[in-house]
C-alpha cells in the first residue's frame, strides 16, 4: 500500500495545511515508510475483537443539568485576535 502526492494533497486540504511541491515530495516518501511500518499490524488476526473506544472502562457519566458559574465573557475573549461587541470576529463566509 502506498500513497500518492495527489492523495496527500487531498488530506492536507481537509486538515487545512498547505505544502510546497518539495515538501509534499518529502512527505510522500516519509509517509510510505510509515505505512510500511504500520502494515505489520495486518499480521495480527483481529476477527471478532472489539476495538478499544476509550481509555477508561467507565460508562457515560451524567450530572444534573444545573446552571453553574462559567468563565466570564471578557476572559473567554481575551486571547482572540479580533473581538467586537462581546463576540469573536470571524472571516466572512457569506456574501
Amino acid at each position: 500500500m502506498s500513497v500518492s502526492e495527489q492523495e496527500l494533497r487531498q488530506v492536507a486540504e481537509l486538515v487545512r495545511l498547505a505544502f510546497s511541491e518539495d515538501e509534499l515530495r518529502v512527505l510522500v516518501g516519509e509517509f510510505n515508510r510509515i505505512l510500511q511500518f504500520v502494515a505489520k499490524l495486518n499480521a495480527v488476526d483481529t476477527t471478532g475483537v472489539p476495538p478499544t473506544v476509550q481509555g477508561v472502562k467507565v460508562k457515560n457519566r451524567f450530572r444534573p443539568d444545573q446552571v453553574r458559574p462559567s468563565l466570564p465573557r471578557t476572559e473567554a475573549l481575551k486571547n482572540a485576535v479580533a473581538v467586537k461587541d462581546g463576540s469573536f470576529v470571524v472571516p466572512q463566509i457569506m456574501e
Binding site: 488530506v11 495486518n42 495480527v44 483481529t46 476495538p51 478499544t52
Partner: peptide
C-alpha cells in the same frame, strides 16, 4: 481516519489495543 482507510488502519489499531 478517512473513508476507505478507517477499517484498515484506525480500527485495526484499536482492536490490537484491546488485545
Amino acid at each position: 481516519l478517512s473513508a476507505g482507510h478507517y477499517e484498515k488502519y484506525y480500527q485495526k489499531a484499536q482492536q490490537i489495543r484491546t488485545l
